[in-house]
C-alpha cells in the first residue's frame, strides 16, 4: 500500500476585463472549481455571491471603472477550505473600512443605498479582508471552509 504523497494545492487563475458583467463569468468559473473540490451546493452559492461583490469592488473602486484594466482571481483548494484572492490594479486604494450601515438609514435617505458588498461578503464566507499586496493593487482575500463544525 502506498500513501498518497502530499502534493501541492490545486489552484486556478482567472483574469477578466475590468468591466461590470464579467463578474458573472468569474463566479461560474470559481463555482465549477469549488464543486470540483466537493464544496456543497449552498456553500457554492455563498461563494458565488461573495466573489461577485469582491469583483464589483475591484472593478468600481480598485480599478475606478477605468477601461482596459483587468481583475485577476486566484482560487486555491486546500484540505478543508478554499481560498480566493481578487486583485485589481489599485487605481484607487480601497481599504474597505466604511462603516456598516443598516437598512433603516438607507430607507430614510440618510445613507447611500449602495455599499453593502463588504457586509454581505463578511456574512457569507468564513474569513474576508484586504491583504498586503507588494505589487501595488488592492488584494482581497476570502476563505470558505467546506464544513463548519
Amino acid at each position: 500500500m502506498t500513501l498518497q504523497m502530499a502534493t501541492s494545492n490545486p489552484f486556478i487563475e482567472l483574469s477578466v476585463p475590468s468591466e461590470l458583467g464579467y463578474e458573472k463569468i468569474a463566479r461560474d468559473a470559481v463555482a465549477a472549481f469549488a464543486r470540483r473540490l466537493g464544496c456543497d451546493r449552498e456553500r457554492v452559492e455563498d461563494l458565488k455571491t461573495a466573489l461577485s461583490e469582491a469583483c464589483i469592488n475591484a472593478i468600481e473602486h480598485g480599478n475606478a471603472s477605468v477601461s482596459g484594466l483587468r481583475v485577476d482571481i486566484q482560487c486555491t483548494g486546500m484540505v478543508d477550505r478554499l481560498m480566493v484572492e481578487v486583485r485589481d490594479y489599485g487605481v484607487r486604494r480601497y481599504p474597505g473600512d466604511m462603516p456598516v450601515v443598516g437598512i433603516d438609514l438607507k430607507l430614510q435617505g440618510l445613507a447611500p443605498r449602495r455599499g453593502m458588498g463588504l457586509m454581505m461578503i463578511s456574512q457569507l464566507v468564513d474569513e474576508a479582508g484586504f491583504t498586503e499586496n507588494t505589487e501595488g493593487g488592492n488584494r482581497f482575500r476570502l476563505v470558505l471552509y467546506f464544513r463548519r463544525s
Binding site: 449552498e42 455571491t49 461583490e53 437598512i103 438607507k106 430607507l107 435617505g109 449602495r114 458588498g117
Partner: peptide, 30 residues
C-alpha cells in the same frame, strides 16, 4: 447582487411613501 438590492431598497422607500404593501416571491433559498 448588492447593486440590485440597492434598487429594491429604493422601491421599499417608494412603497412606504405611497402607503403600499410589498412582498417578494420566487427567490431561491440563497
Amino acid at each position: 447582487n448588492s447593486a440590485g438590492i440597492a434598487i429594491l431598497i429604493g422601491i421599499v422607500t417608494e412603497v412606504n411613501r405611497n402607503n403600499q404593501k410589498l412582498a417578494v416571491s420566487g427567490l431561491s433559498q440563497h
